[in-house]
């Protein structure tokens, strides 16, 4: 048996060398704690092009063994995925995320990925502002949803009564609104990208000069006396993935930021990456990118814009978001 008095400097040095791997263990463990599959979800619209491009260009190779991007087709599909746990990372309408958070669902907003993609499209030269819609017929989709609420507020701000001053035709979807416009059954249509781009393209082929006559972001900014931005959608993360892989969040956001810059610089290449994931034609996605106001703003930075939008669109009682603005915990 060796006495403690017999321990010399060589033994201490050998002991330290032997202990070095043990001291480094937390780091090694972290390195091994990679995400097996980083599964992103999003709507079949502009912001999802960014995620699909980020996945296609291996932006998350440092933190995940694999990454995927899948488009959900309806808010119901999104809700079902979130509640079942099948969707943990998704681009979500900001209002929907705020509503879920306020009702106790463990979801938080990581960033804002579009500053608004709403337009009023028309082929009528006389329509260039909200006030010009007086006496015209307008197709409006998203009844009761964010775009329709914002549109109603803009009408009211411009002194227009939607029941007496213009004829509103409710449409089931932006695509249907676009079809009504192209068929000449309405004078204008409230649409979102990429449906607006589809209307412009189809109109051009038929000799109709369909254009984005009213930029709702600009009209909103003018009404609110603020920046012309509508932070409509961002990346939402459930608490489950924050608990298990929360340390990967900075890398995810950095990857999205870099991908956003690439998408804006080369929409055609990004659209080619996204066409399969989104199930939408690459030319349509490429042409819609410049009008989708794609950004990658951390949620905390965009908070003032988000609160301005939520306050205005939720009405005095804020029933649409459970009666109050989300607290600090909502913004990552």
């Amino acid at each position: 048996m060796t006495s403690i008095r017999n321990i010399d400097r060589r033994a201490i040095l050998l002991g330290a060398l032997a202990a070095a791997p043990a001291l480094a263990m937390p780091g090694l463990l972290r390195a091994q704690d990679r995400i097996a599959t980083l599964a992103f979800f999003g709507p079949p619209a502009g912001p999802s092009v960014t995620l699909a491009h980020a996945v296609a260009t291996n932006r998350f190779a440092d933190i995940a063994d694999a990454a995927s991007m899948t488009a959900w087709r309806s808010p119901d599909e999104l809700r079902a995925g979130l509640t079942s746990g099948g969707i943990a990372l998704s681009i979500v309408p900001v209002q929907a995320a705020a509503n879920l958070y306020n009702r106790g669902f463990p979801i938080r907003l990581a960033n804002v990925m579009t500053d608004g993609l709403l337009y009023v499209a028309t082929g009528d030269d006389g329509i260039n502002a909200i006030a010009d819609l007086r006496g015209h017929s307008v197709a409006v989709p998203f009844r009761g949803d964010t775009p329709e609420i914002l549109f109603s507020q803009l009408l009211a701000h411009n002194g227009l009564n939607p029941e007496t001053d213009l004829r509103i035709t409710w449409a089931g979807s932006p695509i249907e609104a676009m079809q009504l416009l192209l068929a000449g059954r309405v004078d204008a249509a409230l649409t979102a990208e990429p449906s607006t781009t589809a209307a412009v393209m189809a109109g051009r082929q038929a000799g109709k000069d369909i254009r984005r006559a009213i930029d709702l972001q600009a009209a909103w900014g003018e009404m609110a006396g603020a920046a012309p931005v509508l932070p409509q959608a961002g990346l939402a993360i459930t608490q489950g993935i924050l608990d298990t892989h929360g340390d990967a969040l900075p890398a995810i956001l950095a990857g999205i930021e870099a991908a956003t810059a690439e998408v804006l610089a080369d929409p055609a290449a990004a659209a080619s990456d996204a066409t399969d994931a989104l199930g939408m034609p690459a030319p349509l996605l490429a042409a819609s990118v410049p009008h989708s106001n794609l950004v990658a703003r951390p949620a905390a930075e965009a908070r003032a814009d988000i609160e301005r939008m939520l306050s205005a669109m939720s009405g005095a009682d804020m029933a649409a978001i459970d009666g109050r603005l989300p607290d600090d915990g909502f913004y990552l």
Partner: peptide, 15 residues
């Protein structure tokens, strides 16, 4: 004339 790039035959035919 529509600038439908990158080329997608089905989308061009649809338009």
């Amino acid at each position: 004339t529509g600038g439908l790039w990158p080329f997608d035959l089905r989308f061009s035919a649809l338009i």
